[in-house]
Amino acid sequence: MAELKNWKEIPIGGIIDKPATAKEYQTGTWRVIRPVYQPENCINCMMCWLYCPDQAIKIEVVDGKPKMRGYNYYYCKGCGLCANVCPKSNDKLPEEKRAIVMKPETDFQD
């Protein structure tokens, strides 16, 4: 977090004079379960993108079509809604067949 400013250095009235400053704020540290993207199983239906409450799904437009490109873990809070709404990731499918697998954060080093 940036150093706190004094009263002469900030806009008056409690106004935040720039948009989207929250993008600096890392919400990914809240995550205890991590969605892992398995592109080979993805049909790019965009349901994960539509429902991600934290806009943590990376999209690339290729030939005019949106393609899932994994997660922005800086923001992902690990709610798992993406996996829940994913038509290729229901509980009945074996993990290796799913497009999104939820794994404990403790499995990862980074």
Binding site: L4, K5, W7, D17, P19
Partner: peptide, 16 residues
């Protein structure tokens, strides 16, 4: 775009 009326906690309310 500006934001009016944010939640202003103990780290900045006093300055305002």
């Amino acid at each position: 775009p500006v934001t009016y009326g944010p939640l202003d906690l103990y780290d900045y309310y006093f300055e305002h």
